[in-house]
Design a binder for these strands. Structure first.
Lengths: 260, 260
DNA sequence: TATCGGCATTGATGCCGGTCAATCAGCGCC
DNA sequence: GGCGCTGATTGACCGGCATCAATGCCGATA
């Protein structure tokens, strides 16, 4: 590799990294970043591959560069519960613990910036400014996880589905838009990043019920189907209303437009 | 205050603090602890009082010393969801953020070790060893939150109720036992720390359904009612069966920082 | 003690949503 | 094109749970 083009010790890999400015790495100076890049390497995983298994030593940690990683908790009854989804720039793996309490699995094809957990831990302790940024990242993840918790404790499935779609419509701006589309559509696009089965598991329901709720929103002109995995938000206030259904909403739904 | 009795710079307040060894403060040396104690103070809140409101500046952070604090999320439609419960030695408040995404409210009468968020932030950045311990605490909270998400996502109400009771039976040992009771009963005691309404909201159900499930367990001789808020576990294996989880899962869950 | 208000329990009823099953749509492959 | 496979949708059924309502229980207050 020709590092001559990068002066001041700036890191070649990280300079072109799409998520550098959004990950904890941004706290590292050029010199420190170079050190960090020496213990990290990009790695591809195919959809379905297990990155870290539950109960493992969790020897790998790092950043999601592209794709979606799902956190799952396998219960002994064979049921796989999805605990969270990790998007690009999210930190994955369990630092400072001998064993991961969850599995990390590629929900789509993913690219990860991987580090040995041990090397990462010693590195981070020697660079408090990076550890500080990592703390900020983890605090954000904690907030996000609690927001998902709030979502899943909603009583009706429709609330959870609407909330899920709403949040995705917010995240889709930069990350999910098809790069080949040269104009940005005026209305928010919902790009479902994973299959119905995974979404349903994440929302604590079944693919059938999920499908029914989505189709209900389509019939009510809240969203419009582009293809199987893409929807356009036609009526954002309506979608927001569905995230917290009132009694009137339920009655108008079952009354005017009974489930057929 | 007479600090003469405490040599080597040891901190008067913290030496007698019931949760010192379990909180992030344990990483602080005597000298640093003294500094920390200068920016912290104990404060009492009555049941129902709001400690930090959602969207607030979140000017206060600190440790729960005694009592239960509930985290609530007001949804866009105005519905209030319980996102987590904080027990003694848990960290509360949102450090390093200008605004709290959740409300912190006293679920019982509580004692908090409060610090100005700003003072805490500058203190922690100047003491990386304390910030490191804080990071470990937050990572544990993240795990616990995700485990709770797994619990609530795809279980029947009975399983959630049984899991909740089981975890409480583990925590009741030291923290919740009435200090006036002079003998420890041989069988585990479940002390419900908060009212039925809050528990039901936390479990994603209603007080009525919660009550029915508890009474079912009583009728099946799994637990025995002592008074409204105290139960005795008669048949622990039976209770574990109702959770639908394996014993190992539950053991790991009721470990260091369970149940949020 | 009598009254009141908050909370827990119990009962009756309707409906949401899980389950099982069939159908449909998309895709790769020969 | 025919075929099989996977995943999404739609339908029928019914059990579990939310809802509404009534009752019981306890503590507070005068």
């Amino acid at each position: 590799m020709n590092d001559a083009a990068f002066t001041h010790g700036s890191c070649k890999k990280c300079d072109t990294c799409a998520i550098h400015q959004r990950s904890f790495c941004r706290a590292a100076s050029d010199e420190v970043l170079n050190e960090l890049s020496r213990i990290s390497h990009l790695r591809e995983y195919e959809k379905g591959q297990v990155i870290v298994a539950q109960g493992d030593d969790a020897e790998i940690v790092g950043n999601v560069v592209s794709g979606i990683v799902k956190l799952t908790n396998m219960s002994m009854s064979g049921q796989q519960n999805i605990v969270g989804l990790l998007f690009p720039s999210d930190f994955f793996g369990r630092a400072f613990s001998d064993e991961s309490r969850f599995s990390y699995e590629a929900a789509t094809d993913v690219t990860l910036c991987c580090m040995s957990r041990h090397a990462f831990e010693t590195f981070v302790v020697r660079h408090p400014e990076v550890e500080h940024e990592l703390l900020l990242t983890i605090l954000d993840e904690l907030d996000a996880t609690r927001e998902w918790t709030a979502m899943t404790s909603c009583h009706t499935t429709m609330q959870r589905v609407a909330t899920f779609l709403f949040i995705l419509s917010r995240r889709s701006d930069g990350v999910f838009c098809d790069p080949s589309s040269r104009t940005r559509l005026p209305r928010p696009i919902i790009a479902l990043p994973i299959g119905r089965r995974d979404i349903a598991a994440y929302l604590g329901t079944t693919p059938e019920t999920l499908s029914r709720n989505i189709q209900t929103l389509v019939r009510q002109n809240i969203i419009r189907s582009l293809d199987t995995n893409h929807f356009e938000v036609v009526d954002m206030p309506g979608l927001i209303d569905r995230t917290g259904e009132t009694r009137e909403d339920l009655e108008s739904m079952s009354g005017a437009e009974p489930l057929r």
